[in-house]
Simulated scan of single mutants.
Amino acid sequence: MPTLADKTPTCVVRGLSFDALATALGRGRTSVFTLNMMHMRLLAREPEFRESYRQASIVTLDSNLLNTCFLRRRMTVATGSDLVQHLSARRTFRDRSVLVIGNVTAEEAASVMASRRLEVFRPPFGFIHDPAAVDAVIARVREMAPDMVFIAVGAPQSEMLTLRLRRAGLVEPSILCCGAAFEFLLGKQARSPVFFRRTGLEWAWRLAGNPRRLAGRYASDAGFLLSMLGPLHRLARSGALRVGGLQLQFRQEAGPGLTLGRGALGAG
């Protein structure tokens, strides 16, 4: 007889190489999200954000803090910025069309991501709460019909927009939610030194550099972390964590065996 746990929606958080992720994005119909502590907090309170995660093709781990402190460093960490940098160096989309949704110019985006055709759409601040603004983004994606969409705005807007694009029938392009990745690679924002990233202390470096903007967010993340200490303590042993009615399963995987779930966003 099925238990309550059996009926809980599940999202697999995968440890994958950058090459495997680049291959998946390059073949189209793939959406990639990057899980961090703020995302976990949002999963606990935002139903549409949870649904976007449940429907994503691939969710990677974007938290050295989680990996170091609670997963015994057994996962490959793939941040949005590092993945965009890898795609840029590999020139994955040089023969494809690319749309960047975010606060960069076309010239800036083209200097990061070589492509046959590249366009930029800059939505207004807080656009996800404005139906007309969301419709304008959907219309632009439909008009351009790109092979690849980089949604370079913050969570939860990027993930919720991905869900709405797929529900609008735009299933062909791959989508990567990459936050401030283009701004980091352009030098418009400074990334933390490698030591801070690898040890899970990137948040401390960023907070010191911009306390007014980040203090509230990190305080909320810290409160959520404290509330989840019990389940997080068991994470290394169980490999699973329930957040807001969504079961997260953490799994290190080999690239060549990568398959996508039939219900995933962009899987058709």
Rank of each mutant, 00 (worst) to 15 (best):
G216S: 10
V141L: 05
N210C: 09
S192E: 13
L229V: 11
G268P: 06
F182T: 05
G154Q: 01
G200D: 13
D62F: 08
L71A: 06
A24Y: 00
R96T: 02
A139M: 01
R91M: 01
E48G: 09
F184A: 03
A110I: 09
R45C: 12
G245E: 00
F49I: 06
S174N: 01
Q249W: 10
L235D: 10
E108F: 05
R198W: 13
H39T: 14
A145S: 05
Y218K: 06
G26E: 04
G209I: 05
F184D: 08
L258Q: 08
L35D: 09
E172A: 09
R91S: 02
A114F: 01
G169H: 03
G223W: 14
F33T: 04
E51C: 09
E46Q: 14
G15C: 08
P211V: 00
A78S: 14
S227Q: 13
G239L: 08
E51G: 03
V112W: 02
T105F: 06
S238N: 15
L21N: 03
E119L: 09
G257Y: 06
G126Q: 02
C177I: 03
L163W: 03
R206F: 08
L66K: 12
V84Q: 10
G169T: 04
A264M: 00
V98R: 05
T199F: 15
L248F: 04
A22G: 04
L83Q: 11
A190P: 11
F127T: 01
A109D: 05
A145D: 07
A152W: 09
L118H: 04
N103Q: 14
V137E: 02
L241C: 05
T34Y: 07
L201I: 12
V59Y: 06
R116L: 10
G169E: 00
S192N: 13
P156G: 03
A190Q: 15
G28N: 03
T23A: 14
C69D: 15
V13E: 07
F121Q: 13
N67M: 08
D82F: 12
R96G: 00
R212W: 13
L246P: 02
V98G: 03
D135P: 05
L61Q: 05
T79L: 12
F150L: 12
L4K: 02
M38S: 15
V171E: 09
R41G: 13
P9R: 00
C69I: 15
I175G: 01
V194C: 07
L16T: 04
S174H: 00
F18I: 01
E183V: 07
G80D: 10
F196V: 08
I128K: 06
M148Y: 12
G15R: 01
M40F: 12
R213Q: 13
A264C: 01
R164Y: 01
R74N: 14
S57N: 00
P156C: 11
Q189P: 01
F125D: 10
G245T: 02
